[in-house]
Design a protein around this nucleic acid. Structure first.
Lengths: 284, 284
DNA sequence: CCCGGTGATACCCGCCGGGTATGACAGGGC
DNA sequence: GCCCTGTCATACCCGGCGGGTATCACCGGG
């Protein structure tokens, strides 16, 4: 009587995200009436009203908001259990593949050193590198698609993970080579935000773009192109110098917060292979 | 085809903990055959062998160990979703009860200050204080029985939680008043471990007692009694002075690690009430 | 006033989760 | 060697419930 089934959570999360029973049912590959009934049963069993059915659509109650957040976390944990179990059972041995999530746009120098050093360890596990977007490592770790990640504070929040600090670096402004500001030996943050003819590029934050005049960036190549064309400016960690184009100029930023690269993993992990990788990383 | 039901997780965790289908079935309140079948189906769906059925009992495979850990986490997250949703729906408002887990044996000074200060806040939520054992705050936070906890590093691990540091204090040895060592102005850790006639009391650690000659402690009153009787000695944070008996003497320990009290909460929490409590605590 | 679109209700069906009875198999005691 | 015991697996049956289709109740808009 008190245990939520994952099916119920999946249903509720779908409805809470769509705020529409019909679309949610379609997304779930089922008809609308059983979905309505399932949500009603869920509300009755919890003894709580989750949705406000107004004419014209549906709204979440306070309890509904809570269940949406907590339910997503629970579903992630369940997927993680399935995925990690499958991975562990793959080839028998206790030493198994480890999935490492890294930003596709990040410098590969540190990564190469880490992989090389770890591969030299006596009984190293196989490392699968999973390239991902700018801010999705936390969700990859939570739902089990990855076991460990390289994260960059303060861009990624380390909340909920164990982590070990690896390197710290400053940040640079990447400007079109011909721009007047590119001649300066150093700049401040204030110098590069609000340049009238050079709006700061906007990265998607969990799929949604912050407001502003700058172009919306979808991938690093597109950004590099736009900078080279003199259309925008971007801020990156020092290590981004490794992929600059001929038409780019990097200028150090004096007052930008330092970027700290961490290796991070789910706090409850108990894997030997992971421990070995972390130990290796900490020695770099 | 790829989604684990919580029922399956409950079943597997029961079997993995009991390592015996019959006992697990009894614990689950069901018959043994359907349980066997459910586990077989689970293994088939995951494509992974979870248990080694030898004649005379059952053993976990590597994948089984993984599923036991990850499955427990997923079940905790699911229970947490149910409990927190129920709590949020209780009395309607978005401001709701907040459950604060504190060690029953901890000093109440800090707690009182915190509760008083928070109650004075403009729109404070109702705080329910949940007294718990020495090391169960993490599991209370994980399975949703509590929303926030006072934890004591280095005794509690803060892994997986967000936290804010509150106070730091030294540690004292609590000795029988008449004991020769009680006359010293200060002692070192080495002085109070291995006293021939006064073995150090042993606290249960997640239900299991560390080996040693000292008495096994079940609650604080019992411990106080044993110290007053001259049978044992214990180490506590400074604030424990507030509950000492007449027959006790507290002696500062010069080289014991400092005890840091934190307020900690699940990293993904988004509750306004919680934010207010943390802000209040940080100002103390 | 009717129509379109919403979620809820009514009713039916087939699957699957659970129970009971029994089997297969290996140790241990006599 | 025998049987007895304790283990997990198999065979079979049944009832509940999860899901589908058809339809209703409701309301806002042209």
């Amino acid at each position: 009587m008190d245990t939520l089934e994952t099916r119920e959570l999946r249903y509720f999360v779908a409805v809470a995200e769509e705020l529409h029973f019909g679309r949610a049912a379609e997304r779930l590959g089922m008809a609308q009436p059983p979905l309505s009934r399932a949500i009603q049963q869920l509300e009755r069993r919890l003894g709580v009203s989750l949705l406000e059915r107004n004419r014209r659509g549906v709204r979440l109650t306070g309890a509904g908001e809570v269940l949406l957040h907590e339910g997503r976390a629970a579903l992630d944990a369940t997927s993680a259990a399935a995925r990690r179990t499958r991975r562990a059972g793959g080839t028998g041995g206790p030493r198994n593949r480890l999935v490492l999530a890294v930003k596709a746009a990040a410098s590969h120098e540190l990564l190469r050193k880490l992989l090389d050093a770890y591969a030299a360890e006596p009984d190293a596990a196989e490392i699968e590198v999973l390239p991902c977007g700018m801010c999705e490592q936390p969700e990859l770790l939570r739902d089990g698609r990855a076991d460990v990640a390289l994260m960059h504070a303060p861009f990624n929040s380390l909340a909920g993970f164990d982590s070990e600090e690896l390197t710290t670096e400053g940040q640079i402004a990447v400007l079109p080579a011909g721009h007047p500001l590119a001649a300066h030996p150093a700049l401040s943050l204030a110098d590069v935000t609000d340049i009238p003819d050079l709006p700061l590029a906007r990265w998607p934050n969990h799929g949604v773009y912050p407001p502003g005049p700058g172009p919306e960036i979808h991938n690093q190549t597109q950004l590099a192109q736009l900078i080279a064309l003199g259309r925008t400016v971007a801020i990156f960690p020092d290590s981004a110098r490794s992929w600059l184009w001929a038409g780019h100029t990097a200028v150090p930023l004096t007052d930008a917060p330092p970027v700290v690269t961490h290796i991070a993993w789910p706090a409850h992990s108990r894997s030997l292979a992971l421990a070995g990788l972390v130990r290796t990383a900490a020695r770099l």
